[in-house]
């Protein structure tokens, strides 16, 4: 029964990891940019939510309605300023610039908010309540809700990309930037929209993690970015549903590892990651190897 429990918990945690990963995957798919500040931006979103909740006593879930658009706007602005100008100088520059951005954010947060951990919605019934399956399995409502949010976000992104004219435009630019320009598309604006979408999802990931666990200034790089990266690679670069599959595989591996020995939780996740890199480097969902 303990193993069944581990699998169930792992699958549900996969939803959280998919929330971390889908924005990273989207940006990579459209711009071929690996945003190393991805996790730190999630932490910023969490801190903004904490700030808003503390200042206005707004209900936790309402803060999402404020934070997601704020982060989306920040994403557009960041893209059109910092990232776009580094894109013009080559892929390596974007890696260095986003790494720099990550350091600035992390140290800025340390400077202004100290290294204390902070949670979101502690004591809230959504965060604390759970239900039982049988006698041995306890499932937290929060994880179920986060999983559902991840599925809704992925469905929404898929619908947006395949059905809307902006989505079509994003796919066109992702496919062939020059040809898209010759068809009149301003790719910089399109990149901005993709970044806004990505940061919207990152905001959800940051708030969800703040409720699931605690946030501190280093959570962004040592947890969120890392897990997002692993989920994206396991699932397949640039694939949206692959991030959910990758997240679930990572989550299940971690839970099974923890079941064997509590200190093996992270190790098990990375072993699976390595196995995928060796056996199927294009990821589980990709049909052909990525270049």
């Amino acid at each position: 029964m303990a193993w069944v429990n581990a699998v169930i918990q792992g699958v549900l945690t996969g939803g959280l990891y998919a929330l971390f990963a889908c924005g990273l995957s989207l940006l990579f798919g459209v711009m071929k940019v690996v945003n190393l500040a991805h996790g730190d931006l999630a932490v910023i979103a969490g801190y903004v939510a904490i700030g808003i909740i503390t200042a206005t006593h707004m209900p936790v879930l309402w803060s999402v309605v404020v934070v997601v658009p704020v982060m989306a706007v920040l994403g557009y602005v960041l893209q059109r300023t910092v990232i776009q100008s580094s894109l013009n100088r080559g892929v390596l520059t974007t890696l260095i610039v986003t790494l720099g951005l990550s350091m600035v954010i992390e140290n800025g947060l340390l400077q202004f908010f100290s290294a204390d951990t902070r949670g979101i919605g502690a004591g809230m019934s959504l965060v604390t309540s759970s239900f039982s399956l049988g006698s041995q399995i306890q499932i937290a409502w929060l994880l179920v809700v986060i999983f559902a949010v991840a599925v809704v976000v992925l469905l929404g992104l898929q619908y947006f990309l395949s059905g809307s004219s902006y989505g079509r435009l994003i796919r066109a630019v992702a496919d062939d930037q020059e040809a898209a320009q010759l068809s009149g598309a301003d790719y910089r604006h399109v990149f901005g929209i993709a970044a806004a979408l990505a940061l919207g999802t990152v905001a959800l990931g940051g708030i969800a993690y703040g409720m699931y666990s605690d946030l501190d200034p280093t959570t962004g790089t040592d947890t969120i970015l890392l897990f997002a990266f692993v989920a994206v690679v396991i699932g397949g670069l640039g694939s949206l549903w692959g991030t959910l599959l990758g997240g679930i595989v990572l989550g299940v591996a971690q839970q099974i590892g923890a079941q064997i020995n509590i200190s093996d939780e992270l190790l098990a996740g990375y072993l699976v990651f390595l196995a995928v890199l060796v056996l199927r480097p294009q990821g589980l969902t990709s049909r052909r190897a990525q270049t």
Partner: peptide, 28 residues
């Protein structure tokens, strides 16, 4: 308007979607 010597369609879209992108972006 320009064509490329070696065609560069948006490969994962249908023919009609290719044209929609051009009509919406290029012609506004």
């Amino acid at each position: 308007g320009r064509t490329y010597q070696v065609p560069r369609p948006f490969a994962d879209m249908t023919v009609f979607e290719n044209l929609l992108v051009a009509a919406q972006q290029g012609a506004g």
